[in-house]
């Protein structure tokens, strides 16, 4: 790991000034992705700006019909939050099966979404639950946030401050967990609120996406049977040592049906 200067601002404004003033500075949240990246020398920032000391960025609250999660809230705090468990149990479950307990004590929702690993869990939740990414500059709807492989709508000097999730009537998350890392080979978050149905898929493509055809079928009948002939489009999906794109397409169908049955 190359050396860098480390800063631990107490205020968001200080962090923002630091990131604008230093061209090669990077934010560090839980460090669960960033520190391994630095160890491999895949990045060599001049400065690391740690958000851990900014108290406003941590915690879970209910605001009207939305659950608001601070960007620096760690996975374990989402998994065990009474507010999340009572209002969106599918989201608590998703957080409880990210990586392992030590990773869940450090890794954060903001870090996961800023990184947008194709196999990460939270992107599936943001798409499937129609969440909103709130930054120091603006609010970004789920559908406008994920742009491609490790690519999001975030600008270099933009910091995620919180994530807002409307409370659905029903929702469930199913994932085919990679047995070694825990990451999603495929993960599917399904939700229903009134006539609105959303199917968010992660793990399968370059970034999280919706399955519109399934959503239309489920809007007519919210049953596993209604989507029994649908699966992912293999041409758009990833192939790697863990799985072919064909298998991922198949898993999208299986996991979506399981999620609908569980919701």
């Amino acid at each position: 790991m190359h050396n860098f200067d480390y800063h631990a601002p107490k205020l968001l404004d200080t962090a923002l000034t630091m990131i604008s003033d230093r061209e090669d500075a990077k934010i560090i949240a839980g460090g669960m992705t960033l520190l391994p990246t630095l160890k491999q020398r895949l990045a060599a920032p001049s400065d690391l700006i740690d958000l851990a000391g900014i108290a406003d960025l941590r915690g879970v609250k209910k605001d009207g019909n939305e659950i608001v999660i601070g960007a620096m809230t760690c996975h374990n705090d989402v998994a065990t939050s009474d507010i999340v468990k009572a209002n969106i149990p599918a989201l608590a479950k998703l957080a409880s099966i990210i990586g392992d307990p030590a990773v869940r004590h450090r890794g954060t929702i903001g870090g996961s979404l800023a990184n947008s690993d194709p196999a990460a869990d939270y992107p599936g939740a943001v798409i499937g639950l129609n969440g909103t990414i709130v930054t120091n500059k603006r609010s970004i709807k789920a559908d406008d946030y994920f742009l491609g492989l490790f690519e999001t709508a975030l600008e270099r000097d933009e910091i995620i401050t919180s994530v807002r999730f409307p409370i659905p009537e029903r929702a469930a998350y199913q994932k085919f967990r990679h047995p070694a890392s825990g990451y999603a080979v495929v993960g599917v978050m399904v939700s229903k609120t009134g006539a609105d149905v959303r199917v968010g898929v992660t793990g399968a493509g370059p970034c999280a996406f919706r399955m519109s055809e399934m959503e239309a079928a489920l809007a007519k009948s919210f049953t596993a049977d209604a989507i029994k002939d649908l699966k992912g489009n293999a041409d758009d999906l990833l192939s790697d040592i863990h799985s072919t794109n064909e298998y991922r397409a198949h898993l999208v169908g299986v996991l979506a049906r399981r999620a609908v049955a569980e919701a």
């Binding site: 480390y6 631990a8 460090g31 669960m32 520190l35 391994p36 160890k39 690391l48 740690d50 851990a52 374990n76 392992d100 307990p101 030590a102 990773v103 004590h105 450090r106 070694a180």
Partner: peptide, 27 residues
Amino acid sequence: CDTTQCGCCVVHVDGKAVKSCTMLAVQ
């Protein structure tokens, strides 16, 4: 492992298990 996989380096920080190979001393 030094790659956040094996857990041999687990210590408690403020009472919670963390992998000390993936946390900076300054943190």
